[in-house]
Every structure is written in C-alpha cells, then in structure tokens.
Design a protein around this nucleic acid. Structure first.
Lengths: 201, 201
DNA sequence: CGTTTAGTGATACGAGCGTATCATCAAGCG
DNA sequence: CGCTTGATGATACGCTCGTATCACTAAACG
C-alpha cells in the first residue's frame, strides 16, 4: 500500500477547505468538486475520506464548532479576570463579525444555519444545536451579576439572555448583509450591554 | 389569438405560487417546474410570463413586500390610536412569526434574505433593501416618545432602533429554527419594549 | 374569410450536481 | 519475491436545473 497517510489530518484538510469556501463563496458553492479543488486533492479523495456529502458537511460543522468555542473562550480570557460581566461581554462580542476571522466564522456558521432551514432531516439525524446551552449560560451569569448588584433587580435573567443572543444574531446578519459594518454593530451591542450593567465605579 | 388573458393576474398567480413554495419547502425548492406545478400551469407558461428566473424572483419579492407592509400597517392600526408607542410595538410585533400568516411571510422573507447572501449581484441590479428606512422610522418615533417623556432621556434613538430591529430579526430566526415558539419570542420582545417605554399610568 | 399573432404545449439541450465504477499504483507481509 | 490491500486517478451514470426550440391553437382584425 502507498504512503499510509494520516486520515484525520487529511479529513481536516478537506473539511477546512469546505469552511473556506463556505465563508467566501457561500455554502451552496461548496460542491464536492469545488472542495476538492480548494483542498488541492482529487474529487475521488474527497469521496474516499467522506463517503457522502452529508458526512463531509457534518465533519466541517464539527471543525467550525471547535473554532467557534475556541474564539469565544479566547475573547473572554482577553477581557481579564473572569467575572459575570466579562463572560457576557466576551461571549457576545466574539460572536459579532468585527474582524476578518469572525467574519469568516460567522459566514460559515450562517451557511450551516440556513442549510438546516431547508434540510431539517439532517439536523434531526444529529442532535444538539447548542445555542440553548449558551443561553442558559448567559442567564446564569446575568443572575450572578444581579446578585452582585451590577444589574438592576427587575430584569429577568432568562428573558434578557435570550434577547441579547437574538440581538447579537440579528446584528451579525445585518453586518453580513452589508447593512452596516462590524464596528457599528459592536457599538449597538455595547450600548445595550452598557444599559444592562451598571457603570463600573 | 386565444383568450386574451389578464397578464398581471397571471403573473400574480405564479408569483404567489413561488411564495407559497418558499414559505413551505424553502426558496431553494422553488424551481421553475415546481412553481409551475404549484400554480397549476405549464412550465412554458412560467417562462412566457417571466423570461428568466431572476425576473420571477424579483416579481415575487415585490408581492412579498406588499404583503409585508400591509401586515405591518394593519398591526399598527389594530393597536388603536397611532402614537409613537403603538407604531414601535406594532411594527416589531408584526415582523415576529407568531401566527400562521407571519410564519409564512417570515419564512419567505428569510429565503430571499439568504439568497442575497449568495447572489449579491442580484441585489445590486436592483436597489433598495428597505430595512434602513424602517430603522430611521423607528428611531424617529423613539425620539418622539422621548420628548413626550415616555422614554428615558439617556437612550440613543438611532442605536436603540437598530437594536430593536436586530433583536426582532434574531428572534424571528430562532422561531423559524425551532429554538422557541412565537409566543416565547413575543414575550422576550415585549420585555425589552416594556423596559424601554415607561409604564403607562 | 383568411391571415395574423398572443398564448400554450411538448420536448430537447447543455451544464452541474452527487455518486458509482474500474483500473492502477505502491507499501507491507509471508 | 509475490500477493494482498490501502490509497488514488480517470471517467461515467443518472438526475435536475434553467433555458431554448418548434409546432400548434384559436381569437382578433382587415
């Protein structure tokens, strides 16, 4: 047999190629042949490592998820000590397409999200769209900030967490749609966060 | 020549068929053949009234726009006297997929919105994505409510209008994505609106 | 009345898609 | 060494898509 190549590395190489296409030309342009060309391999190789296109999409989605959580935790870390406030800020601002990397991630993520709209079966065959977890995490931290007196007592942590997440999603869409740039979106988000959290003394 | 049929009515019939498909099976399922079948006409007829698919999509988008603005103004009217508050409430809640009709409209609208992501040229060939107008309209009404003392003085009308619109979009996506139902989304939106507007005495 | 022509049907074309088939190549093992 | 088998290349199949072609029908008009 030839070279005895590292399968996981090859799969990653191909999966990343798909993500690159998804974040530039859109996920619907990520055909098997395009992915092969982008990864610099033959069509046959893509088929060899992913028997079907769905498997390829699923693997790429997993890679995307890794990069996403990576970015979120890096963003939180960059804000200094881990407090309720920094977790909320870091999580939401990381999800906004403000720099080149986040535009890439958001574009790819949106591609998968809209794919699920049209092929719900694919989502059913594999559980766990995880925004729910994010939402309860945010709610927890908002409640903590509330008890620490950093957030007004009459806010509902769960409703507010959901609103912030939906707001961030909507802002991301508007940036991707060219309605405004990342900086403007960030200003809008920070305005809302600023009136949720009491100013730091 | 045969029957001398009303062109505008035929075009509408076909355009509505496309919208029906877009709001059930998704816009990517709206092929020329599917639209023809849904409208109960032959493929040739669809080609006859819309020389190209792009023309068909554009016409359907126009019909959708009509229905959307119709629904928004109906929603405002239903809230009683036209005040800044009712305009903001009516506009935003009308855009939320809470009942069958709004689910249909939102689904179709989302389909077109994501289509623009992948074919930006089509959007360029025809101006006017109108969320900007909506945003400045909301900002105007928020500023008016502010002068009337119904909204706190330190809110920025433009930033807040943008945030409310993005929030509504994000909530809509979450409903369409099955993350929550329309009632829950409405609760979240009303919570935010309730803390923007001072309670009515 | 006969010719023009708006409207309609049947069918074909070329391209792109996911997937399948078949042959080939080279490294490892007995 | 020779056979097995993991990895790869070339190419084809069947389908669906948007669009194009060609013929036909029947109402309108001089």
């Amino acid at each position: 047999m030839p070279k005895r190549v590292d399968h996981e590395q090859r799969r990653r190489q191909i999966g990343e190629a798909l993500l690159r296409i998804a974040s530039t030309r859109g996920l619907q342009s990520a055909t098997m042949r395009e992915v092969a060309a982008e990864a610099g391999v033959s069509l046959r190789l893509v088929q060899y490592y992913f028997h079907t296109k769905e498997q390829l999409l699923l693997a790429a989605l997993a890679y995307l998820g890794e990069q996403l959580t990576e970015r979120v935790s890096a963003s939180i870390r960059a804000l200094g000590p881990v407090t309720a406030r920094t977790v909320v800020y870091g999580t939401l601002t990381a999800a906004l397409p403000t720099d080149e990397e986040s535009v890439r991630l958001t574009r790819a993520y949106t591609g998968f999200y809209t794919l699920v709209f049209s092929e719900p079966e694919m989502a059913e065959r594999h559980g766990a769209v995880y925004p729910d977890k994010l939402e309860s995490l945010l709610a927890k931290h908002i409640a903590a900030a509330q008890e620490a007196g950093e957030v007004a007592g009459d806010v509902d942590p769960k409703l507010t967490a959901a609103a912030l997440l939906a707001l961030t999603n909507g802002l991301g869409s508007s940036v991707l749609g060219g309605q405004r740039n990342g900086a403007a979106a960030l200003r809008i988000l920070e305005d809302q966060l600023g009136r949720l959290f009491r100013p730091l003394d």
